[in-house]
Amino acid sequence: MKGTHLGEFEEVVLLIVAVLYDNAYGVAIQEEIAKRSGRKVTISTVHSALHRLDKKGYATSRYGEATATRGGRRKLLFTVTPAGEKVLNQSRRLRNDLWDSIPELAFKF
């Protein structure tokens, strides 16, 4: 498997999977990204990112209950794995560390 690096968009998607918790599937994630960040992404981009997360072991998927909408098809629901949580935390910690080490003067323009 190539690398375990978490890309920027992957991070966003993974966070949103965590946010949506029990209802994290393609369309919901797409909408949530649009709502929160204003980014318009296609559904296939979302799936592509989810697939990569799956392969890297940060998220797992399962099928939900069948619903009457969606032509009776089940939702492919994603959840964050412990490894996912760990990598998110790492990333967050890295940012926090970085924030913490910014000298106060740095942002005085």
Partner: peptide, 15 residues
Amino acid sequence: QRLEGIQGDLAELYE
């Protein structure tokens, strides 16, 4: 393995 989920998403968007 993915087909159903993807098709479902597409159908939802379509509706």
